[in-house]
């Protein structure tokens, strides 16, 4: 499977994603520069963490205007798998590909720690292979990860089974209803604050993130239909 990792100016988890996808998981992983008008034939797209354009305005508010967002929209509307982690999640919300917004953490501080999360659903291309008997231990590292949406949107997300992950222990950032990740209406776009790409290697602490990418690979293999990668 071929993953495309988008690099915005200020992305800083791009290399971690490329390393995890290729060296830890054995997939092909390519770089996609943010000015690109196409996705290099990727089967799935990864929007990495970091501080795109410095995030001096609102996180992701400038990145949504990058040229690469155009082919990304087409790819997503054709059912292509898109995962946005941390800043990637913020960008997907700003771009309107996901519902809701990420606010400053409840305690107004950046937090880097390993947290426990549980899938809110297993009926998705990102969570089908997550273990059911225990939570996943995956690191977070963000200052603005407090998920917010109005009550009716939250109700709809729950009704449509689109909560991908919830924090299972203490809620680290004050996210509404403990939400750590959400799915798009088409269920093919995931945004999550925890970093699964940081949890793919025993040497750095955890391998629980592998479940997310294994789910994606399984879903892709099943789909057979390669979306238009423009």
């Amino acid at each position: 499977m071929k993953f495309g990792v988008v690099i915005f100016p200020g992305s800083n988890c791009d290399h971690d994603a490329l390393y995890a996808l290729s060296c830890n998981l054995g997939h092909e992983a390519i770089e996609i520069w943010h000015e690109s008008e196409e996705l290099g034939g990727a089967d799935a797209v990864f929007l990495p963490g970091g501080f795109s354009y410095g995030d001096y305005l609102r996180c992701g508010a400038l990145a949504r205007f990058s040229p690469v967002i155009r082919p990304l929209r087409r790819f997503a509307s054709n059912g292509g798998l898109v995962i946005g982690v941390c800043n990637g999640f913020q960008i997907l919300c700003e771009a309107g590909l996901l519902d809701g917004a990420l606010l400053r953490n409840r305690d107004l501080r950046f937090i880097c720690r390993t947290v426990e999360i549980v899938p809110g659903t297993r009926a998705s291309a990102f969570t089908s292979h997550c273990p059911s008997e225990r939570p996943l231990r995956i690191p977070i590292a963000h200052g603005e990860g407090c998920y917010f949406a109005n009550e009716s949107v939250l109700d709809r997300l729950e009704k449509e089974d689109r909560i991908a992950f919830r924090y299972s222990g203490a809620n680290p950032n004050g996210s509404a209803r403990g939400i750590a990740g959400v799915l798009s209406e088409g269920r093919n776009v995931l945004g999550m604050m925890p970093h699964p790409e940081r949890a793919c290697d025993e040497a750095v602490g955890s391998t629980d993130g592998i479940a997310v990418f294994r789910s994606m690979a399984a879903a892709f293999a099943k789909s057979q239909v390669v979306p238009d990668a423009a």
Binding site: N12, C13, H15, D16, Y19, A20, G49, R109, F110, I111, C112, R113, P139, A141, H195, E197, R198, D201, A203, V204, G205
Partner: peptide, 25 residues
């Protein structure tokens, strides 16, 4: 203090804050 620092980015930190010595591979 150290939870406010991203001590994991680059995924090479094999011993981070709280360890007697920090280690990167």
């Amino acid at each position: 203090i150290w939870e406010q620092y991203d001590h994991q980015v680059r995924t090479n930190t094999t011993a981070g804050p709280g360890s007697d010595a920090a280690v990167v591979r």
